[in-house]
Nucleic acid binder design. Sequence first.
DNA 1: AAGTGGTCTAGACCACCCC
DNA 2: GGGTGGTCTAGACCACTTC
Lengths: 262, 262
Amino acid sequence: MNTTPPNLPSQPPVNGGSASASGTSPTFSPLYQQIKALITQSLQAGEWKPGELIPSEVDLATRFKVSQGTVRKAIDELAAENLVVRRQGKGTFVATHHEARAQFRFLRLMPDAGEPHSADNKILDVKRLRAPSEVARILDIKAGDSVVCIKRVQSFDGAATIVEEIWLPGSIFKGLTAERLSEYKGPMYGLFESEFGTRMIRASEKIRAVAADEATAQLLGTVTGTPLLSVERTSYTYGDKPVEVRRSLYLTDRHHYQNELS
Amino acid sequence: MNTTPPNLPSQPPVNGGSASASGTSPTFSPLYQQIKALITQSLQAGEWKPGELIPSEVDLATRFKVSQGTVRKAIDELAAENLVVRRQGKGTFVATHHEARAQFRFLRLMPDAGEPHSADNKILDVKRLRAPSEVARILDIKAGDSVVCIKRVQSFDGAATIVEEIWLPGSIFKGLTAERLSEYKGPMYGLFESEFGTRMIRASEKIRAVAADEATAQLLGTVTGTPLLSVERTSYTYGDKPVEVRRSLYLTDRHHYQNELS
DNA sequence: AAGTGGTCTAGACCACCCC
DNA sequence: GGGTGGTCTAGACCACTTC
């Protein structure tokens, strides 16, 4: 019945032919993973910008010379990793931080009662300086390279709740000033994405309980020694490249850090 | 070419025929979701016990009168939710807490340096009493119903690090005694699974920073007022039924709570 | 060799969205 | 009506495990 072998096109599309045709193929990976990698590269290269529509599954299948099902599986994984968003009937879109949906993906602090709120930001300081060795190590740059250091306080319902220091590689965030930060409405990651072409896609946090020092206590309107949640976050962009170190202190008398284990 | 319509068997298998055949079908859900629900019911009913092999995809496809691809998609989601584990060439197994793999899914406290360790547990107290109203509310039982309350301290490398109270519905954990808890080797959720037929599949945590009271400080070998991580966990079994309330205090001077945001 | 999950294809139909 | 993603099927072949 079937006269045309399904996996042997005259021009091998992605793999070097059938997987086991040449005996041991040391660097073999499934087709859909290769397609996924190719799409990720296009995302990273900015071929499609955040918020934009990417080509349809059929188009991509044609481009990569694979079946729609294979493209579908690749996009399924990208959607599971929040790199793209599927919308039935419309298409697949590049994920963006400019959505209500994505706001609380990286801010897990919730009010003990009531609905989540939008934060009121107060920028205390923006400095450019040479990277301290530990920050340099985490950002994977050389100690002494230029970094931007932002200090700010966030308030919810008028109550100061978060004080944090944010360290960014100076090479990427060149024109970042206190003015641009202050006047920007919306989440900081949205600014990074729109103005500096750097999209955070993943973060890792280490959480501890610490006592407030005097300066922090004053900023948060509390007393020295108050227990605070210390959150050390490292954020990554495409290719697991670290692009942010953030050291936050959360006042948790009326808020809590919400985490789902599954 | 195709004379047999693909979606119209003489005996409708699961749905009431094709989705749009009878006009508006108010309670429609995809086939694979229905299959997933059926498999979940079998898991819940104990048709296949934790660690056991479930029927192959072909068998399940035959049983439910659907294609293998539909069963596959159902199992894919169950695997993503950690209810089952796929193993190529062997089959699909019911997930169990008796695996090194699953140990650190619910314990996110990691040492600042060095490898994770096995904990040394010390049971302080096991009591049966009437549920306080707040515990009853969370466990979805009546205030005053019987509950088991466990108090224990966990040490890592000889250093007391976690002190916690665990509240369980008395109706489920009938024969639970301090002896059985103390003599049991391995994670507590493994005991719950094997001895009481209740498998935790999901948990939700609220994290805060608090100051150690005198009793807690003494148990942890520190001083009153030391900042501690307060973790309030609610655990759920099949059907989102709450079956555990756990109030833990973590000493985070040599450990941290690790969390991945993605 | 037989059985399992894993990949890939081709084609059908559906639900949703927009023109 | 035409395009998009979402579901479902049928069949092929592959990789891995076990006998």
